[in-house]
């Protein structure tokens, strides 16, 4: 087992905080747990602000270095600055920041969702040329069957596929697979957390 030596203060805070929250959860000390989590939420909010500053600093650096596509960095910094000033000045409930959100941010993200649909269709078509194995074949076959059974095709619900096959695939096979995957993820989550608490992982500079 590796013991922390390089960053004793951050290690102590991380391990102490982590173990306190875990023990408070086990022994039902809700007040203590809520207090510590409240502190963490405050620090996270400061982290969010630092994240925004980091984003601006990276793009400012690109702009200064004359990187390729520096125009995008310029647009990002200007729009970030304008949005920040407008929101800080007028408040987030005012019509102007709401307009930025409704008519700029949402449409841009919606257009990326539209790109997603094309990307996924293309990826599914390409999957079998890139990786020909049993799981890839099953993945594509089940995806096609589920799509065929999901809605009326030219106004007609496909018999057997729509009313029997698709519900069976979605609820029995996919449901069982999803549960298996989620059990694996849960076990992985527990061991990852405990590795941090045992200082085998030190993502805080230790």
């Amino acid at each position: 087992m590796k013991f922390p030596v390089r960053a004793p203060v951050s290690t102590l805070v991380a391990l102490g905080g982590g173990w306190l929250i875990l023990l408070a959860y086990i022994f039902g000390l809700e007040g203590l747990r809520a207090t510590i989590l409240g502190w963490v939420v405050l620090v996270s909010a400061a982290g969010l602000l630092l994240g925004v500053l980091n984003l601006a600093a990276v793009h400012f650096g690109k702009l200064r270095g004359g990187a390729r596509n520096a125009l995008y960095s310029f647009l990002l910094i200007v729009s970030m600055f304008v949005t920040f000033v407008v929101t800080a000045w007028l408040g987030p409930e005012h019509a102007a920041p709401q307009w930025v959100f409704d008519y700029l941010l949402l449409p841009v993200e919606a257009s990326l969702v539209a790109v997603m649909a094309v990307t996924l269709t293309f990826a599914a078509a390409r999957l079998l040329s890139r990786r020909v194995d049993l799981f890839a074949i099953l993945f594509v076959a089940f995806a096609i069957l589920t799509l065929m059974g999901s809605g009326p095709l030219l106004g007609i619900n496909l018999p057997i596929v729509s009313d029997l096959l698709r519900p069976w695939l979605a609820q029995v096979l996919a449901g069982a697979g999803a549960r298996g995957i989620l059990i694996g993820v849960s076990l992985g989550t527990i061991t990852t957390g405990l590795r941090v608490l045992l200082a085998a992982d030190q993502p805080y500079g230790g």
């Binding site: 087992m1 990307t119 996924l120 993945f139 993820v185 992985g188 061991t191 990852t192 590795r195 085998a200």
Partner: peptide, 29 residues
């Protein structure tokens, strides 16, 4: 699964550091 060359399914994601030689406690976990 459809877009990556090597998808990691389920708990495989959490095993990565062990396979990169992170130490005995990772293997043990």
């Amino acid at each position: 699964f459809a877009t990556a060359h090597e998808p990691l399914i389920g708990e495989e994601l959490f095993a990565g550091a062990a396979y990169l030689g992170a130490g005995p406690l990772h293997d043990a976990s």
